[in-house]
Each structure stands twice: as C-alpha cells, then as structure tokens.
Amino acid sequence: MAFAIGANDVANGMATAVGARAITVRQAALIAAFLEFLGAVMFGATVTKTIASGIVSIDHIQDPNKVIIGAISALVAATAWVLLATYYAMPVSTTHSIIGGMVGFGLVSGGARVIYWDKLWKIVLSWFVSPVVGGVLSFIVFKILAWTMLHREHPLKAAKKVAPLMIGFTFFLISFLFSLKTLKKGYAESMRYGLIFFFVVTLVSWLLVRRFSTSDKVNDEYNAVEQIFRRVQVLTSAYVCFSHGANDVANAVGPVALIMLINRTHSTSVGSVEIPKFVLFLGGLGIALGVLLYGYKVMQTIGHDITELNNTRGFSIDFGTATTVLLSSIFGFPISTTHTVVGAVTGVGLARGIEVVNIDVLKDILISWFVTVPFSAGASALTYLALTSMMHF
C-alpha cells in the first residue's frame, strides 16, 4: 500500500515542477523519495484515530480476528485500486481508497448501521469542493501574476516588487500548514511560525531578486521572471512531498498498527492506535520505492497531459493547492490533495482559455475518482468474505 501511495501521490508534489521543467523526472523522483521517507519517519502520524478516521465502528465485532481480516481486506483492496489507477496513469485519492476498503469490510461484517454515513457524505462532497476551490484559487493567483508582472511593459522590474511578497506569503502558508497539520500545534503558535517565515523569506527574496538583470528585451525579462519562480517551485514541491510523507503514511501503516494492537490486546475496543517507529520506517521505505520505481506515470498526467505548464503557472498551482488544504484544515473538511492539485492545474489552464485544457484526460480522471470508493469497497468486501470462509469464521 505504501508503494502504491508513493507511485500515485508523488505527482501531488512534483508533477508541476516536472511539467514546468524546473527539474527532470529523475531529479523529482530522487528528491521526492528522500523527502517522503524523511517526513514519514520523522513526523509520521504517531497516533491515529480508530482506523480510517473513524469511518467504521469496529466495536460491533466481538471476534478480534475478524477485525484483523477486515484491516487486511481494506489494505488489499486499496492497494489493488491505487496500483490499477497508477498503471493507467490516473491520479486518485489514496485516502479515499483506504476509506472505501474499510467501508466494504464494515458493510459485510456489520451492515449499514456500522458506517458513519455523515463522514462518508463529507468525503463525497469533497470530490466536488476540493477541485473547484483549488481551481478557482489557482486561476485567481495566475491572473494576479499576469496582471502585476507578466503583462507589464517591464515584467522583471514589476517582478522585483511583487515576487518577494508572493513568495513570502507562500512560505507563510506552508509553514502555517506544516505546524498545524504535521506538528499538531495550535492556531496561534502556527500563525506565529507562519509570520516569522513570511518576513524572513520576503526579505531574503527581495535581496535575491534585486540581483536579476537582463537586456531591455521583453522576452529576456519574461525568462528572468520564470527563473525566479522556478527556484520557488522546487522548494514548494519539496514541502508538499515532505508533508505528504508525514501525513499520508498512516493510510498504509494505520491498519498494520491496528492489527498489531489487536493481536497484543485481543480486544476490538482500541480507541486510538499507536504506530511503532519501525512500522513508520517500513511505510516510508515503501513510499520512497513507489516514487522511484513507478512515480513517473501519474507525474506525466498532471504535469503534461492536462495542460502545458511553465514556472509561473506551476507556482500558481502550488499556491492554490496549499491555500485550499489550509482552509480545509481550519474548517475540518476532509479534502483530497490529489483532487485539489488536478483542479488547480485545470484552473490555471482555463485562465489561458478552455482550448488549452485536455478535456478527454480530465473526463478519464473524473471517472476514476467516482470509481475509487465503490471499487475499493467491493474488492474489500469480496476479500473479507473469501478470507473468513477459508478460515471458517
């Protein structure tokens, strides 16, 4: 499962940088593998709620062995779906895949009453909300960049004033998010970290951007502006990978930690689940291998196939994605980063006109999103029924 997560979700962080030619696919894979592993091992969710964000009540099952079989079934089903989607280069939500797996096991073991339907409906709603919000924000950011810099008579001169503020605000967002989501700090403390990063990064960016100089040719100035945002894009993509390793490794190792705990306590009333460090290490290793060996397929889809990207467009996508994830964290809305990135890429494409967006690729992606939970649920249910009958439960 960790391998599948690495192969599919690496595109969330690195696809825009690859698509905008800030880095090569090989460089992206190496950077992402290292940072995903580091994030998983250093800050991987040490405590996770009852499996899959409490989407299924497991207290109704008296036999702990059936919960173990259910967790294995969810992992098998989610892995099968994410690998299948990756084979066809479709970016899907790995979080929704494991949730679908848990729903399938829950339905056949205890019926509809054991599913927390209110949480499931929130997830369904997020299929529509996250790509729209990510798309709208990226569209707005790109239009702001175009209006304040790219369409000016002297783009580089304008960029020296505007770019440091945009870069500073981006680092405010990602430091605030990292503190809030990964370090689990409060809003006030996270805001303080964010503001420190904003002022420091804005000042450093201003000093560095001042050194850029070109001839008076407008094309040279455009290239200089793109160079400024190329460097920023690599940093924002690196953040997304580090944060992803820390936050999403639980999708793979959470069920494993649950199995280990039930095996030790022989009880299904587990509450929260401690994830041992060596399990996080294995999860991080799996994600890193998935990135290195199979991550290029989905990167191609998001970075190239939806629309053509350059560095200012890539920056707009990262900015829109980070803002959407931040807003969802504040309001407690379970969005998918994958869905948000795809929406953001589409939004930037639409800012230049619908004719530059590959609608056929988008249709295929949307179909894969709607299939995710039903496929994972069905595969998990069948796996659970097969295993329980084989073991004569």
Rank of each mutant, 00 (worst) to 15 (best):
P164W: 04
P164H: 04
G168I: 07
F169S: 13
F169Y: 10
T170Y: 09
F171H: 13
F171M: 11
F172M: 05
F176I: 00
L177C: 07
L177A: 14
L177Q: 04
F178I: 03
F178R: 06
S179C: 12
S179Q: 09
S179W: 08
S179A: 15
L180D: 02
K181V: 01
K181L: 07
T182H: 00
T182W: 01
L183H: 11
L183R: 01
L183G: 05
K184Y: 03
K184G: 07
K184D: 14
K185I: 02
K185E: 06
Y187S: 03
E189I: 10
E189G: 04
M191V: 07
M191G: 10
R192A: 15
Y193R: 10
Y193D: 12
G194M: 02
L195N: 05
I196E: 08
F197C: 15
F197N: 06
V200G: 06
V200T: 15
T202L: 10
V204R: 08
S205H: 05
S205N: 05
S205C: 07
S205Y: 14
W206H: 13
W206A: 15
L207R: 11
L207F: 13
L208G: 05
V209I: 14
R210G: 04
F212Q: 08
S213Q: 14
S213E: 11
S215L: 01
D216Y: 10
D216C: 08
K217F: 14
K217M: 05
V218E: 11
V218T: 14
V218I: 15
V218A: 08
D220I: 03
E221C: 10
Y222M: 11
A224C: 04
A224R: 11
A224W: 00
E226M: 09
E226P: 07
Q227K: 12
Q227N: 15
R230L: 12
R231E: 13
V232S: 09
Q233I: 13
V234F: 04
V234T: 12
V234R: 06
L235F: 13
L235V: 07
L235T: 08
T236S: 15
S237H: 12
Y239M: 06
C241E: 09
C241Y: 03
C241H: 00
F242W: 05
F242G: 06
S243C: 02
H244V: 03
G245Q: 00
A246P: 00
A246E: 04
D248I: 01
D248R: 02
V249Q: 00
V249Y: 00
A250W: 00
N251Q: 06
N251E: 01
V253I: 10
G254F: 07
G254H: 05
G254T: 03
G254L: 09
A257F: 07
L258Q: 10
L258A: 09
L258E: 06
I259Y: 02
M260T: 06
M260A: 02
L261Q: 12
L261W: 03
L261T: 12
I262E: 11
N263W: 08
N263C: 04
N263L: 11
R264Q: 15
R264G: 10
T265L: 12
T265Q: 13
T265P: 07
H266W: 14
H266C: 06
V270E: 13
E274N: 13
E274G: 06
I275M: 06
P276Q: 04
K277R: 08
K277Y: 09
F278M: 11
F278D: 13
V279A: 02
L280H: 06
F281S: 05
F281T: 11
F281W: 15
F281A: 12
L282N: 04
L282A: 13
G283N: 01
L285T: 12
I287T: 12
